[in-house]
């Protein structure tokens, strides 16, 4: 395994560890960090006039991700 590949795997692992740590911190009572779900909810509130741009973007991204992972 090359050093570059090891670095990439390490970086991705670190990202998910940090995500887990922030989520745990966000769920502590009195935390001023929003949970990932609350963050998604905030983004999904975004509208341009009456068009729910945030919802379309987040749900569309998740749908695309499923296709990318399981069907492409």
């Amino acid at each position: 395994m090359s050093l570059a590949r090891m670095f990439a795997i390490g970086a991705f692992t670190l990202v998910f560890v940090v995500i887990g740590m922030i989520e745990v911190a966000a769920r502590r009572p009195g935390s001023n960090i929003p949970t990932l779900g609350a963050l998604c909810g905030f983004v999904m509130r975004y509208q341009v006039r009456r068009l729910p741009v945030g919802r379309i973007a987040v749900l569309g991204f998740w749908w695309w991700l499923g296709w990318h992972v399981f069907a492409r």
Binding site: I22, N32, I33, P34, L36, R45
Partner: peptide, 13 residues
């Protein structure tokens, strides 16, 4: 219910 504003701690994300 989604938050109307994000607290400053959101920057951690």
């Amino acid at each position: 219910r989604a938050p109307r504003r994000l607290p400053s701690g959101a920057a951690w994300w």
